[in-house]
């Protein structure tokens, strides 16, 4: 089994997408503002309020979560799967980190041709913090290896 260093990967400019599901197994895709590793096999993802209501309802009811991190310039990607532990408001340091995360993401998107005027309009705030366990990690770079389970290097 290969290894990935999630903490190192999180220093890059990344897009975050989060999957949840409801009682009928209908999945729901929502964007994330930021991901932070908070301990061994634990992390938080910030979900923007403008679209997070269905995802938060799904997490309250069922808890299953998948968090995809993808680097737009290379399509390198990692997926974490786990369970929601708690939901809460973001702290000031988390919001500061989220702003830095968004700046890196926008720099990546700028590198593939999006104009600053377009990127400035992207809105990630306000947001809700979802605490989750990291039970499984998968290689998500497109190609024949996508979906392969990998070990998170800590």
């Amino acid at each position: 089994m290969g290894q990935v260093d999630i903490a190192e990967f999180l220093k890059r400019g990344l897009c975050v997408l989060v999957a949840t599901r409801d009682a009928s197994l209908m999945p729901h895709c929502v964007t994330g503002s930021e991901v932070i590793l908070t301990g061994p096999r634990r992390g938080i993802v910030l979900l923007p309020t403008f679209e997070s209501a269905p995802a938060l309802a799904n997490l309250r009811a069922h808890g299953a979560i998948a968090v995809l991190l993808e680097e737009p310039t290379t399509h390198r990607g990692i997926q974490m799967k786990g369970r929601c532990l708690a939901m809460r408001e973001a702290t000031a340091p988390e919001l500061k980190q989220a702003a830095e995360f968004a700046a890196r993401t926008k720099a990546e998107l700028s590198a593939i041709g999006f104009a600053p005027a377009v990127l400035e309009r992207m809105n990630f705030m306000p947001c809700t913090v979802v605490e989750f366990t990291v039970q499984q990690v998968f290689e998500q770079t497109p190609g024949p290896g996508a979906g392969r389970a990998v070990e998170a290097r800590t």
């Binding site: 999957a19 949840t20 599901r21 299953a64 998948a66 990607g77 998500q140």
Partner: peptide
């Protein structure tokens, strides 16, 4: 794209 396995585990991909 988000999908969900029969056991209720969601999956997120591009």
């Amino acid at each position: 794209i988000a999908t969900c396995a029969a056991d209720g585990t969601p999956n997120q991909a591009m």
